[in-house]
Design a protein around this nucleic acid. Structure first.
Ligand SMILES: NC(=O)c1ccc[n+]([C@@H]2O[C@H](COP(=O)([O-])OP(=O)(O)OC[C@H]3O[C@@H](n4cnc5c(N)ncnc54)[C@H](O)[C@@H]3O)[C@@H](O)[C@H]2O)c1
Ligand SMILES: NC(=O)c1ccc[n+]([C@@H]2O[C@H](COP(=O)([O-])OP(=O)(O)OC[C@H]3O[C@@H](n4cnc5c(N)ncnc54)[C@H](O)[C@@H]3O)[C@@H](O)[C@H]2O)c1
Lengths: 219, 219
DNA sequence: TGGACTATGTGAAAACTTTAACGACTTCCG
DNA sequence: CGGAAGTCGTTAAAGTTTTCACATAGTCCA
């Protein structure tokens, strides 16, 4: 909870995990150095933006040389707390929830889905992707000190479950349901609304010219 | 392809589908009128932002009254081309792809996954969620005039498939793989990177104070 | 009908984000 | 060793998005 880091722009913070992943790729390819230009080509973010982003953390590179991959990587590992794994709960083992459980978020990542909950007794007691599925009634009992939850229940159940999660002490929710849930201000919710992403893409295609000067990428 | 509409800020454009969905909800609840304040509570977007967004389309509301739900809805239906369905292809019928196929995007939506492709012959020939799965070798032959594709293949295959999609005339790609693909500037790619979303949430929780003045929501 | 109330639409300011440009320092080759 | 080439870190400018705040115009009740 560094006071320093409070100053980092949100836009920058959102790109950090992306940088981290590509630095990891470079490192496992045995690359020793990288320039903001090379990184820019890889992650599709303007090189000036990358340099600006890095500069919030101090002078990480060397003029005329670029950045040392290993150094940068170890710096971001600390910054992004890659050393400690954040344990996550998933609520709603349906289509989407099952996909997430089968996917191993820990591969390149400091997060791990530790347990799952569902209301459907057919699902309860099983293991999906190596994760135990408990009954939603046991949420408060099993949750322990987990602080992050992924919400993949039907929209109609979203607010109710969110209330229980908050009550149980969760501090972050990744919400995949179309419901815009209400939570106290100490709790952070990120909405990922897949239907809307698709609609927005279609809208942009129909209404925005996509010629030469189209932006490199979106979102 | 109205010239008018080119002026609409991207940030606004991304919120339109959200507004549309909530207006639909209100309408099916029988509500006749709605104020920017009420809408704000529902979608968690500042009411001034909502009024500003709407104002790009002209004066849609009435002072002292608010907005007529039916009118607004029919206006957005036209604006978002809700009348014509956009046909979409999905490439990669794995965990995530299967979840999308089973989900009916058409429920509240003008998009429909029309066909799917996979390299695994075990999947080919089956129907998933009512959608035929073809072999990836037949991509060019089957694709026809579809202009949007959802990419849920392994990261290593992403760029190769993207190249083929572009060659086959696709104009928009919703990319769920961690690979940042390169495409010509006439093609629009939206990246949805779930692992990064999760990491970013964790980062914000650890490094940003989430007290009184925390923003209402993110992303 | 009148007057209190309500809620829009928008000008202006503030906040945030991206991009351009370049001085300064490093590297690296001949 | 010296100079050309490369690349950072940053200042300043431009662009985008959000928010404030209020005149204005319509509502609605008594
Ligand atoms: N699948 C997709 O492609 C997709 C796309 C966009 C949005 N979404 C949204 O994601 C969410 C999940 O979608 P899905 O397709 O996985 O749905 P699903 O119906 O397959 O899964 C929902 C799961 O939640 C469980 N559940 C229901 N009520 C519960 C409760 N009170 N407590 C705990 N578990 C409960 C159900 O038993 C089920 O297993 C939905 O809100 C949906 O709108 C999904
Ligand atoms: N599942 C998740 O929760 C999750 C989370 C984050 C990111 N992702 C990303 O989404 C993508 C898909 O993930 P997944 O879990 O569904 O993977 P998956 O391995 O379950 O599915 C990939 C599918 O693509 C098919 N495929 C492989 N090569 C192909 C090719 N050349 N042409 C056509 N099809 C091909 C495979 O046969 C398989 O069915 C991956 O890039 C993954 O990194 C998934």
């Amino acid at each position: 909870m560094d006071i320093e880091q409070t100053k980092i722009p949100q836009a920058t913070a959102k790109r950090l995990p992306l940088y981290y992943r590509f630095l990891n790729n470079l490192h496992s390819q045995g690359k020793m150095r990288v320039s903001s230009k090379e990184l820019s080509d890889a992650v599709k973010v303007d090189s000036a933006t990358i340099r600006r982003d890095f500069s919030y953390f101090g002078a990480l590179g060397k003029k005329g040389y670029g950045y040392n991959v290993e150094y940068l990587l170890s710096f971001f590992r600390k910054t992004l707390d890659q050393d400690e794994t954040t344990r996550v709960a998933l609520i709603g083992v349906g289509n989407l929830g099952t996909a997430f459980l089968n996917y191993n978020f820990t591969k390149n990542n400091n997060t791990k889905i530790e347990m799952a909950f569902d209301a459907n007794t057919d699902r309860v007691g099983n293991e999906v992707g190596g994760v135990n599925v408990y009954h939603i009634d046991d949420l408060e009992e099993k949750l322990g000190d987990l602080s992050v939850a992924i919400l993949t229940v039907p929209a109609s159940a979203a607010q109710g479950i969110a209330d229980r999660l908050v009550e149980a002490g969760i501090s972050g929710i990744l919400n995949f349901t179309p419901a815009r849930i209400s939570v106290p201000s100490q709790v952070r919710v990120h909405h990922i609304d897949l239907a809307i992403e698709l609609q927005a893409l279609v809208y942009f295609l129909k209404h925005y010219p996509l010629n030469e000067e189209a932006p490199m990428d979106e979102q």
